[in-house]
Design a binder for these strands. Structure first.
Length: 490
RNA sequence: GGGCCAUUAGCUCAGUCGGUAGAGCACCUGACUUUUAAUCAGGGUGUCCCAGGUUCGAAUCCUGGAUGGCUCACCA
Protein backbone atom coordinates (compact mmCIF):
# COMPACT_ATOMS: atom_id res chain seq x y z
CA UNK A 1 0.00 0.00 0.00
CA UNK A 2 1.34 3.39 -0.95
CA UNK A 3 1.93 5.99 1.70
CA UNK A 4 -0.45 8.28 -0.21
CA UNK A 5 -3.22 5.75 0.06
CA UNK A 6 -3.09 5.38 3.80
CA UNK A 7 -5.95 7.07 5.49
CA UNK A 8 -5.43 9.83 7.98
CA UNK A 9 -5.51 7.53 10.98
CA UNK A 10 -2.81 5.29 9.63
CA UNK A 11 -0.68 8.21 8.48
CA UNK A 12 -0.80 9.66 11.97
CA UNK A 13 0.43 6.37 13.44
CA UNK A 14 3.28 6.15 10.95
CA UNK A 15 4.27 9.70 11.79
CA UNK A 16 4.40 8.82 15.45
CA UNK A 17 6.42 5.73 14.65
CA UNK A 18 8.95 7.90 12.82
CA UNK A 19 9.05 10.34 15.72
CA UNK A 20 9.76 7.49 18.13
CA UNK A 21 12.74 6.49 16.00
CA UNK A 22 13.94 10.12 15.87
CA UNK A 23 13.92 10.13 19.65
CA UNK A 24 15.89 6.93 19.87
CA UNK A 25 13.00 4.55 20.61
CA UNK A 26 12.73 1.42 18.46
CA UNK A 27 9.02 1.02 17.61
CA UNK A 28 9.46 -2.77 17.48
CA UNK A 29 11.81 -3.08 20.38
CA UNK A 30 12.84 -5.52 23.05
CA UNK A 31 10.58 -7.53 25.28
CA UNK A 32 9.65 -6.40 28.73
CA UNK A 33 8.86 -9.10 31.27
CA UNK A 34 5.84 -8.52 33.42
CA UNK A 35 6.05 -9.28 37.12
CA UNK A 36 2.30 -9.89 37.33
CA UNK A 37 -0.75 -10.24 35.18
CA UNK A 38 -3.24 -7.38 35.37
CA UNK A 39 -5.77 -9.47 37.22
CA UNK A 40 -3.21 -10.69 39.77
CA UNK A 41 -2.41 -7.12 40.77
CA UNK A 42 -6.06 -6.31 41.19
CA UNK A 43 -6.80 -9.49 43.13
CA UNK A 44 -3.71 -9.22 45.32
CA UNK A 45 -3.95 -5.48 45.90
CA UNK A 46 -3.86 -5.84 49.68
CA UNK A 47 -0.39 -7.42 49.53
CA UNK A 48 0.90 -5.43 46.56
CA UNK A 49 -0.12 -1.90 47.54
CA UNK A 50 2.87 0.46 47.22
CA UNK A 51 5.19 -2.27 45.96
CA UNK A 52 6.72 -1.92 42.52
CA UNK A 53 5.37 -4.14 39.74
CA UNK A 54 5.78 -4.34 35.99
CA UNK A 55 2.75 -4.80 33.75
CA UNK A 56 2.78 -5.29 30.00
CA UNK A 57 0.07 -5.15 27.42
CA UNK A 58 -1.78 -3.36 24.71
CA UNK A 59 -3.00 0.17 25.34
CA UNK A 60 -6.80 0.05 25.11
CA UNK A 61 -7.74 3.45 26.48
CA UNK A 62 -6.01 6.79 27.05
CA UNK A 63 -7.24 9.74 29.10
CA UNK A 64 -4.74 12.58 28.92
CA UNK A 65 -5.07 15.51 31.33
CA UNK A 66 -2.17 17.73 30.40
CA UNK A 67 0.49 16.93 32.95
CA UNK A 68 -1.05 13.59 33.94
CA UNK A 69 -2.38 10.72 31.85
CA UNK A 70 -4.38 7.61 32.59
CA UNK A 71 -4.48 4.58 30.33
CA UNK A 72 -5.58 0.96 30.47
CA UNK A 73 -3.35 -1.91 29.46
CA UNK A 74 -4.91 -5.16 28.30
CA UNK A 75 -2.95 -8.35 28.80
CA UNK A 76 -3.87 -12.02 28.43
CA UNK A 77 -5.85 -12.07 31.66
CA UNK A 78 -7.56 -8.70 31.71
CA UNK A 79 -7.01 -4.98 32.04
CA UNK A 80 -5.35 -2.67 34.50
CA UNK A 81 -5.08 1.09 34.71
CA UNK A 82 -1.70 2.78 34.53
CA UNK A 83 -0.92 6.37 35.52
CA UNK A 84 1.70 8.69 34.08
CA UNK A 85 2.72 11.93 35.76
CA UNK A 86 5.00 14.59 34.35
CA UNK A 87 6.67 15.23 37.72
CA UNK A 88 7.26 11.52 38.26
CA UNK A 89 8.56 10.62 34.79
CA UNK A 90 10.25 13.86 33.74
CA UNK A 91 9.68 15.81 30.54
CA UNK A 92 11.39 13.34 28.17
CA UNK A 93 9.60 10.16 29.21
CA UNK A 94 6.27 11.86 29.80
CA UNK A 95 6.15 13.53 26.41
CA UNK A 96 7.22 10.30 24.73
CA UNK A 97 3.92 8.78 25.79
CA UNK A 98 2.17 11.27 23.51
CA UNK A 99 3.52 9.17 20.63
CA UNK A 100 1.53 6.17 21.84
CA UNK A 101 -1.76 5.15 20.21
CA UNK A 102 -4.51 2.77 21.18
CA UNK A 103 -3.24 -0.67 20.28
CA UNK A 104 0.44 -0.13 21.04
CA UNK A 105 2.27 -2.58 23.32
CA UNK A 106 4.11 -1.05 26.25
CA UNK A 107 5.43 -2.07 29.65
CA UNK A 108 4.93 0.01 32.78
CA UNK A 109 6.92 -0.26 36.00
CA UNK A 110 5.96 1.41 39.25
CA UNK A 111 4.13 1.17 42.57
CA UNK A 112 0.58 -0.06 42.90
CA UNK A 113 -1.99 2.31 44.37
CA UNK A 114 -5.68 2.94 44.43
CA UNK A 115 -7.17 6.09 42.90
CA UNK A 116 -9.69 8.35 44.55
CA UNK A 117 -12.44 6.52 42.70
CA UNK A 118 -11.03 3.23 43.99
CA UNK A 119 -9.43 1.73 40.87
CA UNK A 120 -6.26 -0.29 41.35
CA UNK A 121 -3.60 1.43 39.25
CA UNK A 122 0.11 1.20 38.50
CA UNK A 123 1.85 4.60 38.78
CA UNK A 124 4.66 4.70 36.23
CA UNK A 125 8.17 5.27 37.56
CA UNK A 126 9.31 4.22 34.14
CA UNK A 127 7.80 2.78 31.01
CA UNK A 128 9.00 0.99 27.87
CA UNK A 129 7.82 0.91 24.30
CA UNK A 130 7.49 -2.58 22.79
CA UNK A 131 5.46 -2.54 19.58
CA UNK A 132 3.61 0.00 17.46
CA UNK A 133 0.12 -0.59 16.15
CA UNK A 134 -0.38 0.97 12.72
CA UNK A 135 -4.08 0.30 12.37
CA UNK A 136 -6.87 1.81 14.47
CA UNK A 137 -8.82 -0.58 16.68
CA UNK A 138 -12.60 -0.79 16.54
CA UNK A 139 -14.57 1.54 18.71
CA UNK A 140 -14.59 1.01 22.46
CA UNK A 141 -18.31 0.75 23.25
CA UNK A 142 -19.70 -1.30 20.43
CA UNK A 143 -16.54 -3.23 19.60
CA UNK A 144 -16.40 -5.21 16.40
CA UNK A 145 -19.83 -6.49 15.41
CA UNK A 146 -19.56 -7.10 11.69
CA UNK A 147 -19.54 -10.91 11.68
CA UNK A 148 -17.69 -11.11 8.41
CA UNK A 149 -14.85 -8.97 9.72
CA UNK A 150 -14.88 -10.90 13.00
CA UNK A 151 -14.26 -14.18 11.15
CA UNK A 152 -11.87 -12.80 8.55
CA UNK A 153 -9.82 -10.85 11.08
CA UNK A 154 -10.25 -13.00 14.15
CA UNK A 155 -7.21 -11.34 15.71
CA UNK A 156 -9.15 -8.09 15.94
CA UNK A 157 -12.20 -9.90 17.28
CA UNK A 158 -10.03 -11.44 20.00
CA UNK A 159 -8.54 -8.07 20.94
CA UNK A 160 -11.82 -6.25 21.39
CA UNK A 161 -14.37 -8.92 22.27
CA UNK A 162 -13.43 -10.44 25.59
CA UNK A 163 -16.11 -13.14 25.47
CA UNK A 164 -14.66 -14.41 22.19
CA UNK A 165 -11.30 -14.88 23.84
CA UNK A 166 -12.98 -16.69 26.73
CA UNK A 167 -14.84 -19.04 24.41
CA UNK A 168 -11.63 -20.13 22.72
CA UNK A 169 -9.82 -20.53 26.02
CA UNK A 170 -12.71 -22.73 27.15
CA UNK A 171 -12.48 -24.73 23.96
CA UNK A 172 -8.83 -25.40 24.58
CA UNK A 173 -9.49 -26.39 28.20
CA UNK A 174 -12.36 -28.68 27.23
CA UNK A 175 -10.12 -30.51 24.78
CA UNK A 176 -7.40 -30.71 27.41
CA UNK A 177 -9.90 -32.10 29.93
CA UNK A 178 -11.06 -34.63 27.35
CA UNK A 179 -7.48 -35.70 26.77
CA UNK A 180 -6.92 -36.00 30.51
CA UNK A 181 -10.12 -38.01 30.99
CA UNK A 182 -9.12 -40.46 28.26
CA UNK A 183 -5.49 -40.73 29.34
CA UNK A 184 -6.62 -41.41 32.92
CA UNK A 185 -8.69 -44.30 31.59
CA UNK A 186 -5.67 -45.82 29.92
CA UNK A 187 -6.29 -44.70 26.34
CA UNK A 188 -3.36 -44.00 24.04
CA UNK A 189 -3.44 -40.89 21.88
CA UNK A 190 -2.32 -41.62 18.31
CA UNK A 191 -2.08 -39.86 14.97
CA UNK A 192 -3.20 -41.37 11.70
CA UNK A 193 -2.89 -40.07 8.13
CA UNK A 194 -4.83 -37.00 7.10
CA UNK A 195 -3.97 -37.59 3.43
CA UNK A 196 -5.27 -40.95 2.36
CA UNK A 197 -5.57 -43.07 -0.78
CA UNK A 198 -9.07 -44.02 0.26
CA UNK A 199 -11.23 -41.73 2.34
CA UNK A 200 -13.43 -44.01 4.38
CA UNK A 201 -15.08 -44.38 7.76
CA UNK A 202 -18.03 -42.08 7.13
CA UNK A 203 -20.69 -41.33 4.55
CA UNK A 204 -19.40 -38.13 2.98
CA UNK A 205 -17.67 -36.70 -0.05
CA UNK A 206 -13.96 -36.02 0.42
CA UNK A 207 -11.67 -33.20 -0.68
CA UNK A 208 -9.13 -34.26 -3.27
CA UNK A 209 -5.52 -33.17 -3.51
CA UNK A 210 -2.53 -34.28 -5.54
CA UNK A 211 0.93 -35.54 -4.68
CA UNK A 212 3.39 -34.39 -7.34
CA UNK A 213 6.28 -36.78 -6.74
CA UNK A 214 4.07 -39.86 -6.46
CA UNK A 215 1.89 -38.60 -9.28
CA UNK A 216 -1.33 -39.55 -7.57
CA UNK A 217 -4.53 -38.26 -6.09
CA UNK A 218 -4.82 -38.14 -2.34
CA UNK A 219 -7.97 -37.58 -0.32
CA UNK A 220 -8.27 -35.61 2.88
CA UNK A 221 -9.72 -37.89 5.52
CA UNK A 222 -13.43 -37.77 6.30
CA UNK A 223 -12.99 -39.80 9.50
CA UNK A 224 -10.24 -41.42 11.54
CA UNK A 225 -12.18 -44.65 12.05
CA UNK A 226 -10.61 -47.20 9.72
CA UNK A 227 -7.03 -46.47 10.70
CA UNK A 228 -7.80 -46.51 14.40
CA UNK A 229 -9.44 -49.94 14.08
CA UNK A 230 -6.35 -51.21 12.29
CA UNK A 231 -4.53 -50.30 15.50
CA UNK A 232 -6.89 -52.52 17.51
CA UNK A 233 -5.87 -55.34 15.17
CA UNK A 234 -2.28 -54.44 15.98
CA UNK A 235 -2.89 -54.78 19.69
CA UNK A 236 -3.07 -51.13 20.72
CA UNK A 237 -6.18 -51.95 22.72
CA UNK A 238 -7.39 -48.50 23.71
CA UNK A 239 -6.68 -45.67 21.29
CA UNK A 240 -8.06 -42.29 20.44
CA UNK A 241 -7.33 -39.50 18.05
CA UNK A 242 -8.36 -35.87 18.36
CA UNK A 243 -8.09 -34.43 14.92
CA UNK A 244 -9.38 -32.51 12.01
CA UNK A 245 -11.52 -34.22 9.40
CA UNK A 246 -12.70 -32.73 6.12
CA UNK A 247 -16.02 -33.18 4.38
CA UNK A 248 -16.89 -31.63 1.06
CA UNK A 249 -20.36 -30.50 2.05
CA UNK A 250 -22.34 -27.33 2.55
CA UNK A 251 -21.65 -24.76 5.24
CA UNK A 252 -24.18 -23.83 7.91
CA UNK A 253 -24.28 -22.69 11.50
CA UNK A 254 -23.69 -26.34 12.47
CA UNK A 255 -21.33 -27.36 9.66
CA UNK A 256 -17.82 -26.30 8.72
CA UNK A 257 -15.94 -28.15 5.94
CA UNK A 258 -13.11 -28.91 8.34
CA UNK A 259 -14.04 -29.84 11.85
CA UNK A 260 -12.59 -31.62 14.82
CA UNK A 261 -13.57 -35.02 16.09
CA UNK A 262 -12.38 -37.36 18.75
CA UNK A 263 -12.67 -41.01 17.87
CA UNK A 264 -12.13 -43.54 20.62
CA UNK A 265 -11.74 -47.31 20.21
CA UNK A 266 -11.66 -49.84 22.98
CA UNK A 267 -10.99 -53.55 22.61
CA UNK A 268 -13.11 -55.99 24.60
CA UNK A 269 -15.86 -53.38 24.86
CA UNK A 270 -19.30 -52.94 23.33
CA UNK A 271 -22.05 -50.40 22.75
CA UNK A 272 -23.05 -50.22 26.42
CA UNK A 273 -19.46 -49.45 27.40
CA UNK A 274 -19.39 -46.68 24.80
CA UNK A 275 -22.61 -45.16 26.14
CA UNK A 276 -21.19 -45.06 29.61
CA UNK A 277 -17.93 -43.64 28.33
CA UNK A 278 -19.75 -40.91 26.39
CA UNK A 279 -21.97 -39.72 29.20
CA UNK A 280 -19.25 -39.97 31.82
CA UNK A 281 -16.57 -38.19 29.81
CA UNK A 282 -18.84 -35.35 28.71
CA UNK A 283 -20.15 -34.94 32.25
CA UNK A 284 -16.61 -34.98 33.60
CA UNK A 285 -15.13 -32.39 31.26
CA UNK A 286 -18.06 -30.03 31.84
CA UNK A 287 -17.56 -30.36 35.59
CA UNK A 288 -13.82 -29.82 35.30
CA UNK A 289 -13.89 -26.84 32.96
CA UNK A 290 -17.23 -25.17 33.61
CA UNK A 291 -17.66 -26.27 37.22
CA UNK A 292 -21.19 -27.40 36.45
CA UNK A 293 -23.02 -29.97 34.39
CA UNK A 294 -26.16 -27.93 34.01
CA UNK A 295 -26.11 -26.47 30.52
CA UNK A 296 -28.14 -23.66 29.03
CA UNK A 297 -27.98 -23.70 25.27
CA UNK A 298 -29.74 -20.82 23.54
CA UNK A 299 -32.31 -20.66 26.29
CA UNK A 300 -32.86 -24.41 26.61
CA UNK A 301 -31.65 -25.95 29.85
CA UNK A 302 -30.50 -29.51 30.30
CA UNK A 303 -28.35 -31.57 32.64
CA UNK A 304 -25.41 -33.70 31.57
CA UNK A 305 -25.50 -35.90 34.64
CA UNK A 306 -25.50 -39.60 33.71
CA UNK A 307 -27.34 -41.74 32.96
CA UNK A 308 -28.75 -40.18 29.82
CA UNK A 309 -32.06 -41.26 28.36
CA UNK A 310 -31.84 -44.36 26.16
CA UNK A 311 -34.31 -45.08 23.37
CA UNK A 312 -34.15 -47.36 20.38
CA UNK A 313 -34.76 -45.68 17.05
CA UNK A 314 -38.01 -47.62 16.72
CA UNK A 315 -39.12 -46.48 20.18
CA UNK A 316 -38.24 -42.87 19.37
CA UNK A 317 -40.23 -42.95 16.13
CA UNK A 318 -43.19 -44.52 17.93
CA UNK A 319 -43.00 -41.89 20.66
CA UNK A 320 -42.57 -38.77 18.53
CA UNK A 321 -44.05 -39.74 15.16
CA UNK A 322 -46.69 -42.14 16.40
CA UNK A 323 -45.62 -44.78 13.89
CA UNK A 324 -44.74 -48.28 15.10
CA UNK A 325 -42.17 -49.87 12.82
CA UNK A 326 -42.53 -53.16 14.67
CA UNK A 327 -45.85 -53.39 12.86
CA UNK A 328 -44.41 -52.34 9.50
CA UNK A 329 -42.53 -55.44 8.51
CA UNK A 330 -41.69 -54.58 4.90
CA UNK A 331 -40.64 -51.68 2.72
CA UNK A 332 -44.05 -51.29 1.10
CA UNK A 333 -45.90 -50.75 4.37
CA UNK A 334 -43.16 -48.44 5.64
CA UNK A 335 -43.41 -46.36 2.45
CA UNK A 336 -47.16 -46.22 2.89
CA UNK A 337 -46.76 -44.89 6.44
CA UNK A 338 -44.32 -42.27 5.15
CA UNK A 339 -46.77 -41.13 2.50
CA UNK A 340 -49.48 -40.85 5.14
CA UNK A 341 -47.16 -38.78 7.35
CA UNK A 342 -46.31 -36.47 4.46
CA UNK A 343 -42.69 -37.60 4.48
CA UNK A 344 -40.98 -37.31 1.11
CA UNK A 345 -38.87 -40.32 0.23
CA UNK A 346 -36.12 -40.81 -2.29
CA UNK A 347 -36.45 -43.56 -4.83
CA UNK A 348 -35.48 -47.04 -3.71
CA UNK A 349 -35.42 -46.42 0.04
CA UNK A 350 -35.62 -49.52 2.20
CA UNK A 351 -37.55 -50.04 5.42
CA UNK A 352 -34.52 -49.14 7.54
CA UNK A 353 -33.85 -45.99 5.57
CA UNK A 354 -37.49 -44.96 5.86
CA UNK A 355 -37.31 -45.55 9.61
CA UNK A 356 -34.27 -43.27 9.73
CA UNK A 357 -36.10 -40.65 7.65
CA UNK A 358 -38.94 -40.71 10.19
CA UNK A 359 -36.44 -40.37 12.98
CA UNK A 360 -34.63 -37.41 11.46
CA UNK A 361 -37.80 -35.54 10.58
CA UNK A 362 -39.93 -36.18 13.63
CA UNK A 363 -37.63 -37.08 16.51
CA UNK A 364 -34.33 -35.22 16.41
CA UNK A 365 -35.79 -31.77 17.28
CA UNK A 366 -37.35 -33.29 20.43
CA UNK A 367 -34.06 -34.61 21.76
CA UNK A 368 -33.12 -31.60 23.86
CA UNK A 369 -32.06 -33.52 26.95
CA UNK A 370 -28.99 -35.66 26.36
CA UNK A 371 -30.32 -38.84 24.78
CA UNK A 372 -28.87 -41.99 23.25
CA UNK A 373 -30.76 -43.35 20.26
CA UNK A 374 -29.64 -46.91 19.61
CA UNK A 375 -30.27 -49.87 17.33
CA UNK A 376 -29.77 -48.29 13.91
CA UNK A 377 -30.80 -49.88 10.62
CA UNK A 378 -28.02 -51.85 8.97
CA UNK A 379 -28.33 -49.98 5.64
CA UNK A 380 -27.02 -46.76 7.14
CA UNK A 381 -24.47 -48.43 9.44
CA UNK A 382 -21.95 -50.28 7.29
CA UNK A 383 -19.26 -50.47 9.98
CA UNK A 384 -21.40 -51.59 12.93
CA UNK A 385 -22.05 -55.11 14.13
CA UNK A 386 -25.45 -56.71 13.55
CA UNK A 387 -27.71 -57.24 16.52
CA UNK A 388 -27.85 -60.89 17.45
CA UNK A 389 -31.22 -62.29 16.40
CA UNK A 390 -32.20 -58.99 14.67
CA UNK A 391 -29.84 -58.76 11.67
CA UNK A 392 -31.55 -55.78 10.03
CA UNK A 393 -30.33 -53.61 12.91
CA UNK A 394 -26.93 -52.85 14.38
CA UNK A 395 -25.36 -52.15 17.72
CA UNK A 396 -25.06 -48.46 17.05
CA UNK A 397 -26.08 -45.34 18.92
CA UNK A 398 -25.99 -41.65 18.32
CA UNK A 399 -25.93 -39.18 21.20
CA UNK A 400 -28.11 -36.08 20.92
CA UNK A 401 -28.46 -32.88 22.88
CA UNK A 402 -30.29 -29.66 22.03
CA UNK A 403 -31.74 -31.53 19.06
CA UNK A 404 -28.37 -32.09 17.43
CA UNK A 405 -26.16 -35.12 17.03
CA UNK A 406 -22.88 -34.97 18.90
CA UNK A 407 -21.79 -38.61 19.19
CA UNK A 408 -21.87 -41.74 17.07
CA UNK A 409 -20.80 -45.16 18.33
CA UNK A 410 -20.91 -48.85 17.47
CA UNK A 411 -20.07 -52.22 18.65
CA UNK A 412 -17.55 -52.51 15.86
CA UNK A 413 -18.07 -54.96 13.04
CA UNK A 414 -15.10 -57.32 13.24
CA UNK A 415 -16.30 -60.07 10.91
CA UNK A 416 -14.28 -59.54 7.71
CA UNK A 417 -16.71 -61.52 5.54
CA UNK A 418 -19.65 -59.41 6.71
CA UNK A 419 -17.58 -56.24 6.38
CA UNK A 420 -16.74 -57.09 2.77
CA UNK A 421 -20.43 -57.62 2.01
CA UNK A 422 -21.28 -54.27 3.58
CA UNK A 423 -18.68 -52.56 1.43
CA UNK A 424 -20.11 -54.35 -1.60
CA UNK A 425 -23.54 -52.99 -0.75
CA UNK A 426 -22.06 -49.52 -0.42
CA UNK A 427 -20.38 -49.91 -3.81
CA UNK A 428 -23.74 -50.81 -5.31
CA UNK A 429 -25.17 -47.56 -3.90
CA UNK A 430 -22.20 -45.70 -5.30
CA UNK A 431 -22.84 -47.18 -8.74
CA UNK A 432 -26.44 -46.09 -8.38
CA UNK A 433 -25.23 -42.51 -8.01
CA UNK A 434 -24.72 -42.07 -4.26
CA UNK A 435 -21.33 -40.38 -4.16
CA UNK A 436 -21.35 -40.34 -0.37
CA UNK A 437 -21.41 -44.13 -0.13
CA UNK A 438 -18.35 -45.98 1.11
CA UNK A 439 -15.61 -47.18 -1.17
CA UNK A 440 -14.01 -50.61 -0.77
CA UNK A 441 -11.02 -50.58 1.54
CA UNK A 442 -9.16 -53.83 0.83
CA UNK A 443 -6.43 -53.16 3.32
CA UNK A 444 -8.97 -52.62 6.08
CA UNK A 445 -10.55 -55.98 5.21
CA UNK A 446 -7.09 -57.45 5.17
CA UNK A 447 -6.53 -56.16 8.69
CA UNK A 448 -9.86 -57.59 9.90
CA UNK A 449 -8.89 -60.95 8.40
CA UNK A 450 -5.97 -61.07 10.81
CA UNK A 451 -8.56 -60.79 13.56
CA UNK A 452 -9.86 -57.80 15.49
CA UNK A 453 -11.05 -58.32 19.05
CA UNK A 454 -14.63 -57.41 19.95
CA UNK A 455 -14.52 -53.64 20.37
CA UNK A 456 -16.52 -50.52 20.94
CA UNK A 457 -15.90 -47.34 18.99
CA UNK A 458 -17.07 -43.80 19.60
CA UNK A 459 -16.85 -40.52 17.72
CA UNK A 460 -17.69 -37.14 19.20
CA UNK A 461 -17.97 -33.87 17.29
CA UNK A 462 -15.78 -31.55 19.31
CA UNK A 463 -16.98 -28.33 17.70
CA UNK A 464 -20.61 -29.05 18.44
CA UNK A 465 -19.85 -30.16 21.95
CA UNK A 466 -17.96 -26.91 22.51
CA UNK A 467 -20.90 -24.97 21.04
CA UNK A 468 -23.24 -26.51 23.60
CA UNK A 469 -20.86 -26.05 26.50
CA UNK A 470 -20.16 -22.40 25.62
CA UNK A 471 -23.71 -21.51 24.52
CA UNK A 472 -22.44 -20.52 21.07
CA UNK A 473 -25.17 -20.24 18.40
CA UNK A 474 -22.88 -20.87 15.43
CA UNK A 475 -20.05 -23.32 14.80
CA UNK A 476 -18.09 -20.30 13.56
CA UNK A 477 -18.09 -19.01 17.10
CA UNK A 478 -16.00 -21.99 18.21
CA UNK A 479 -13.67 -22.28 15.19
CA UNK A 480 -10.98 -19.61 15.24
CA UNK A 481 -10.72 -19.32 11.47
CA UNK A 482 -13.90 -20.72 9.89
CA UNK A 483 -13.97 -21.49 6.19
CA UNK A 484 -14.94 -18.42 4.16
CA UNK A 485 -14.81 -17.43 0.55
CA UNK A 486 -11.87 -15.17 -0.20
CA UNK A 487 -12.68 -11.51 -0.36
CA UNK A 488 -12.67 -10.35 -3.98
CA UNK A 489 -9.69 -8.05 -4.59
CA UNK A 490 -10.09 -5.36 -7.17
C1' G B 1 -27.52 -24.94 -4.90
C1' G B 2 -32.77 -22.22 -3.85
C1' G B 3 -35.33 -18.18 -1.10
C1' C B 4 -35.11 -13.77 2.03
C1' C B 5 -32.08 -9.85 4.05
C1' A B 6 -27.64 -6.84 4.52
C1' U B 7 -23.24 -3.99 2.59
C1' U B 8 -22.59 4.18 3.76
C1' A B 9 -15.96 7.29 7.48
C1' G B 10 -11.05 3.16 11.05
C1' C B 11 -15.54 1.13 14.26
C1' U B 12 -21.03 1.35 15.52
C1' C B 13 -24.84 3.29 12.77
C1' A B 14 -28.52 7.35 10.56
C1' G B 15 -29.63 9.07 5.65
C1' U B 16 -36.98 11.43 4.37
C1' C B 17 -39.93 12.08 -1.88
C1' G B 18 -34.13 10.79 -6.53
C1' G B 19 -31.24 16.95 -5.64
C1' U B 20 -24.67 14.99 -4.84
C1' A B 21 -23.57 12.36 2.63
C1' G B 22 -24.25 12.80 8.54
C1' A B 23 -23.85 11.41 14.15
C1' G B 24 -21.17 9.05 18.22
C1' C B 25 -16.58 6.87 19.20
C1' A B 26 -11.71 6.99 17.07
C1' C B 27 -8.36 10.68 14.88
C1' C B 28 -6.01 15.91 14.44
C1' U B 29 -5.14 21.11 17.07
C1' G B 30 -5.40 23.59 21.86
C1' A B 31 -6.56 23.68 27.52
C1' C B 32 -6.29 20.51 31.78
C1' U B 33 -1.51 16.65 37.66
C1' U B 34 -6.52 11.01 40.66
C1' U B 35 -9.42 10.36 35.28
C1' U B 36 -12.34 6.21 33.87
C1' A B 37 -17.97 6.48 28.11
C1' A B 38 -12.77 12.19 31.51
C1' U B 39 -14.20 17.20 30.38
C1' C B 40 -14.02 21.91 27.45
C1' A B 41 -13.08 24.67 22.48
C1' G B 42 -12.19 23.87 17.28
C1' G B 43 -11.48 20.42 12.83
C1' G B 44 -15.17 15.66 8.58
C1' U B 45 -11.06 12.35 7.37
C1' G B 46 -15.78 8.93 2.30
C1' U B 47 -14.44 4.02 -4.24
C1' C B 48 -22.02 5.19 -0.20
C1' C B 49 -19.60 -3.28 -2.06
C1' C B 50 -18.61 -3.64 -7.72
C1' A B 51 -20.26 -3.04 -12.98
C1' G B 52 -23.89 -1.45 -16.16
C1' G B 53 -28.75 1.03 -16.96
C1' U B 54 -32.90 4.80 -16.23
C1' U B 55 -32.65 10.16 -15.21
C1' C B 56 -31.04 16.97 -16.09
C1' G B 57 -29.39 14.57 -11.52
C1' A B 58 -28.57 7.97 -8.14
C1' A B 59 -26.25 6.09 -1.46
C1' U B 60 -31.56 6.08 -2.92
C1' C B 61 -34.86 3.33 -8.74
C1' C B 62 -33.73 -1.10 -12.37
C1' U B 63 -30.43 -5.28 -14.11
C1' G B 64 -26.23 -8.28 -13.35
C1' G B 65 -22.25 -9.62 -10.07
C1' A B 66 -19.31 -10.05 -5.19
C1' U B 67 -19.17 -11.03 0.01
C1' G B 68 -21.74 -12.09 4.46
C1' G B 69 -26.09 -13.46 7.59
C1' C B 70 -30.62 -16.24 8.19
C1' U B 71 -33.27 -20.21 6.10
C1' C B 72 -34.49 -24.64 3.01
C1' A B 73 -31.95 -28.75 0.76
C1' C B 74 -27.50 -31.95 2.23
C1' C B 75 -24.51 -33.41 5.96
C1' A B 76 -21.88 -34.22 11.59
Amino acid sequence: MDQENLNELMQSRRRKMAQLRERGIEPYGKKVKASHYSTEIIEQFAELENSVVTVTGRIVSIRAHGKATFAHLQDYKGRIQVYFRLDQLGEEKYSLFELCDLGDFIGVRGPVFRTRKGEVTVAADDWYFMAKSLRPLPEKWHGLKDVELRYRQRYVDLIVNQEVKETFIKRSRLIQALRDALNERGFLEVETPIMQNIAGGALARPFVTYHNALGMKLYLRIATELHLKRLLVGGLDKVYEIGRVFRNEGISSFHNPEFTTVEIYQSYADLDDMMELTENVIYEIAQRVLGTSRITYQGVEFALKPPWTRLTMIEAVRKYAGVDFNKLSDTASAAQAAAKAGLELEKGMTRGEILNAFFESFCEPHLQEPTFIHDYPIEISPLAKRIEGNPQFTYRFEGFMAGKEIANAFTELNDPIDQRERFEQQLAKRRAGDDEAHVMDEDFINALEYGMPPAGGLGIGIDRLVMFLTDSPSIRDVILFPTLRPRAEE
